[in-house]
């Protein structure tokens, strides 16, 4: 792996964390902010998995193996959140 890739991913992830923090200070506890922060975090995580962990260079079957639990977790959380329309 090129050192520029290693440093580049580090830069993207640190910048993402910084952006999340600034966003939070600008508009704390707003649900839109939380959503945007979540998207940024997911982007940083995807960048790390694809480049630093090298998933993009693996065979397609390995891609699916990692993608499947992510999708299952998404199904689980969406189902849980929408099962009950009101707070307990």
């Amino acid at each position: 792996m090129k050192k520029t890739t290693i440093v580049g991913v580090w830069f993207v992830v640190v910048l993402s964390a910084l952006a999340e923090t600034i966003l939070y200070y600008l508009s704390p506890d707003a649900s839109v902010t939380e959503g945007v922060i979540g998207v940024i975090a997911a982007g940083a995580a995807t960048t790390t998995v694809a480049f630093s962990m090298g998933l993009k260079d693996e065979e397609g079957a390995v891609h699916y193996m990692v993608l499947v639990p992510v999708l299952l977790v998404a199904v689980l959380i969406i189902t849980m959140l929408f099962a009950y329309p009101v707070n307990f």
């Binding site: 992830v13 993402s16 964390a17 999340e20 923090t21 966003l23 939070y24 506890d29 939380e34 922060i37 979540g38 940024i40 975090a41 940083a44 995580a45 790390t48 998995v49 630093s52 962990m53 090298g54």
Partner: peptide, 21 residues
């Protein structure tokens, strides 16, 4: 390295969830 980076990735979700929400 694969394991260590995975642990990094998990933190990328823990940080916003507990520090920024």
């Amino acid at each position: 390295v694969l394991f260590w980076l995975f642990v990094d990735v998990v933190w990328l979700f823990i940080f916003p969830l507990f520090y920024l929400a």
